[in-house]
Amino acid sequence: MNLHIVVVEKDPERAQMIEEGLRGAGASEVTIISQDRGLARKIADCHPDMVLIALESPSRDYLEELTLATGPMDRPVAMFVDKSESNMTEAAISAGVSAYVVDGLRQERIKPILEAAIVRFQMVQKMRAELSATRRALEERKVIDRAKGLLMRARNIDEEEAYGLLRKTAMAQGKKMADVAQALVTASELLK
């Protein structure tokens, strides 16, 4: 039996990762939609059995129209928040994935797919967290470098001394070095 799943995801790398997981769990067809434009219509045209979208995506509200699509009482797409599977739903929420399923799709067919989706979305979440940590570290290093440069010029000291001074000040004030550096950079810009 065919199982057609639509994944709404902008980032192609993430989308591919999720798609692989879903195919491994028995999805016969996976369609990736990466654009918000006409989202509800595009999904309706696919006639999917299930739609997956990140919980944090503001585009999710576009999908709500589908729950009203052909008359409110026969609900072609019902939302997957099933109390009988509350463990899995909680896992889905903490992994940041939300799912819409076609009404009447049997529970045992949904389960492996959703489990696979949860695992993949967790991976995506972890990647995203790592990326933002790396980015933050980079930015912090940049601002510390600028502060060092300011100190070296203003006090005529070498790099090591400037670094030591920043670190000492941060420790004395119980602050992060990047914060002290940022304060110095901001202040120096004001004094220009």
Partner: peptide
Amino acid sequence: AASWSALRDMLAMGV
């Protein structure tokens, strides 16, 4: 929350 549907589900699930 990023969307009304997400917020509604958070409330429904007791998050």
